[in-house]
Design a protein around this nucleic acid. Structure first.
Lengths: 170, 170
DNA sequence: TGGGTTTTGTTCATAGGTGGATAATACAAA
DNA sequence: TTTGTATTATCCACCTATGAACAAAACCCA
């Protein structure tokens, strides 16, 4: 059971630079900077890998997240602002994304009967089909990465990240 | 000692949606999707927090990372492609960033004597001063987040993330 | 019933970022 | 030397994302 994990080669040069910064600026906490950079790098790689898979189907990560959120919604219907909340994108961006998805026939816009300010975004059959086709591929080509961790490690990682996110939430 | 960490409120709606997706698509591994979303959300928050601090000094995160990498370099000199590697940005983007930083007098461009294709980017005194002024602020307003974790948990998190990054590296 | 305040979705100007083409230089091999 | 290939930095066209401003509709409360 290894206690210390060797830095992956791609991260070594970055870690060296962090070490040198901290030598010049003793106030900086090396480990905290390292953690932030790790988050940045991992997120970047994950995003890039998703992009490779999605680009083959002419979708970008944000559009795909939107489709997935719709897929999971009751009746596969959401309003643009729900979608903005779910995806973390700005409402302006959601408008643009939906323009494109509607043009491709992956979802439809319908006026909401109860509140005339609202618009119902409904996932079209082609949209459902796309989500069902892509998720397994993402599963095997992106999410499978986590299988370097054993069950206990995955649980630890989930727990620690939720703790950090909670602290970032205030 | 808590074994399970409650999901922070901001993440609950996302986690619910993930659960519903996985109910409709049993092939999807719920935990892997959750981990990926956690990386995305944490990275987003960290980036946003940094932005708040940096914007007060009219710098964006990429520019600041570039300045920091220069700050840590021997003689505070790097070539544009070194900088692209260090920051993870494209070389085209580095050119644009440096245009701006040079215009603000934070660094200078000098021809490299040994290889005339190269350009030496040298951190100017104002650039050093900016790094030294901003790092402690980032430390207290961003990196301090990690203090919700105790020493052992920080080490665990660092170890687990390095393991994941290593797997993403191939 | 009115008046102000919120919420919703959209538009627009602009900033940020990328891939591909390009010119200049270095290098390697015949 | 010459010739071809690689590398370096830059420029350009294009795509993506954001914040501010806006109009329309809903809400709230005196």
């Amino acid at each position: 059971m290894n206690k210390t994990q060797p830095s992956p080669p791609c991260f070594l040069p970055v870690e060296e630079k962090i070490n040198r910064v901290c030598m010049r600026l003793p106030c900086a906490d090396r480990q905290h900077v390292v953690l932030t950079q790790l988050f940045k790098h991992i997120h970047g790689r994950l995003h890039e890998r998703m992009n490779v898979v999605l680009r083959e189907h002419n979708v970008n990560p944000v559009s795909f997240t939107a489709l997935t959120m719709l897929y999971s919604a009751p009746d596969t219907v959401l309003n643009p602002s729900d979608l903005a909340d779910s995806t973390g994108e700005s409402r302006a961006n959601v408008t643009r994304i939906c323009d494109e998805l509607v043009a491709r026939g992956l979802l439809s816009r319908e006026p909401n009967a109860e509140d005339r300010r609202r618009i119902d975004l409904r996932l079209a059959p082609d949209g459902s089909a796309l989500v069902e086709a892509l998720l397994p591929t993402l599963q095997s080509r992106v999410h499978s990465t986590y299988n370097v961790l054993n069950t206990k490690e995955k649980e630890q990682l989930e727990r620690l990240m939720k703790k950090v996110l909670g602290a970032l939430d205030q």
